[in-house]
């Protein structure tokens, strides 16, 4: 940020004196297309969702029922069960994304040979559609004809084919693994970018002082990346908590509800049980939870900016 003289929160001070004050409002013209567009395609549907959450919907008819949908959702054990599954799914996935993404970025940053090729290679899981990735894994994990069981059996790690998606524990582990496989590259990419911004002089100075690799990591790399990692993990939480593609394709929420994350419950309530009002209520509750993370994110970024300015 060293060469930046303004942020969104501070007006372009140096300009007003030059007779450009008259065009101040032009800024809104630049924003208008984006804001109007998003208002039309997102806000209208959003209001519709809020409105729906207070209605009892029967096909094309609806009646206002106040908070009854919310009451019903919150009284149903299924919601709390899904919330627990979601929390577990999100926390395991995000922690693994950040840890593995960081390690991978550090490793890739150290090597000099085939860097670009390897970076592209590591990005592949994130490039293909989650649905496609999940379908490939479904095929790998197939109990009778899948290659994973074959490999593990021949190496001797397992003694009989495992039904990975068939029992609650392994199914949860499987969908989380696929989510980790898919999400690590994004954190890796961000971290790689972050590593490039760390001034080389800091490392050189440390080397002169005879610092070990671990000390350099601990006292230079990590502090420099701290802000980035917090931002990245917050963005990741927001993404993963809404994510449904992988679970939708691999387990549909089963077995016995072991992978029924909130978006799965939402989808099943809306398009299997046809209870749109309750689904909208679940959606609004999910949204509020995401908003808490978003608020955290905003606080962190603001704090980060203030740090920068000092």
């Amino acid at each position: 940020m060293s060469n930046t003289t303004t942020t969104t929160n501070t007006p372009a001070r140096s300009w007003t004196g030059r007779g450009l004050a008259r065009e101040r409002w032009h800024g809104y013209l630049f924003l208008a297309p984006t804001l109007l567009f998003l208002a039309a395609v997102i806000v209208l549907p959003l209001f519709h969702a809020f409105w729906t959450s207070f209605q009892r919907i029967r096909g094309l008819n609806s009646t206002f029922i106040g908070f009854a949908n919310y009451v019903r959702v919150l009284e149903d054990e299924a919601f709390w069960h899904s919330l627990r599954v979601s929390l577990a799914f999100v926390s395991v996935s995000v922690v693994a994304h950040v840890l593995l993404g960081l390690l991978l970025a550090l490793a890739l940053n150290k090597i000099t040979f085939a860097r670009t090729a390897l970076r592209v290679l590591f990005l592949t899981p994130w490039m293909v559609a989650a649905a496609v990735g999940a379908t490939i894994w479904l095929w790998l994990l197939e109990p009778q004809f899948g290659v994973l069981n074959y490999i593990l059996l021949s190496v001797g790690i397992i003694s009989a084919p495992v039904a990975w998606l068939g029992t609650p524990g392994t199914a949860f582990a499987a969908v989380t693994t696929v989510e980790i496989w898919r999400g690590v590259p994004f954190i890796m990419l961000l971290t790689l970018a972050g590593l490039q911004t760390i001034p080389a002089e800091q490392y050189e100075a440390a080397e002169i002082d005879g610092a070990t690799s671990w000390q350099k990591f601990r006292h230079i790399t990590l502090p420099n990346l701290k802000y980035l990692l917090v931002v990245a993990s917050t963005l990741d939480i927001i993404n993963v908590v809404r994510h449904y593609d992988i679970i939708g394709i691999m387990t549909g929420g089963g077995p016995a509800g072991a992978t029924e994350v909130l978006p799965a419950l939402l989808y099943n309530t809306a398009f299997r049980a046809n209870r749109f009002g309750e689904a909208a209520a679940i959606g609004v509750l999910l949204l509020s939870m995401v908003l808490i993370f978003a608020a955290m994110y905003l606080r962190i970024t603001r704090v980060g900016q203030e740090d920068d300015r000092r």
């Binding site: 109990p143 004809f145 998606l165 068939g166």
Partner: peptide
Amino acid sequence: ASPAPTTTNYLEQTVLFAQGK
């Protein structure tokens, strides 16, 4: 009965049958 019944749908069942499992 074949393993993994909780993930066996019509699709998996007919594949197993077609392959003589």
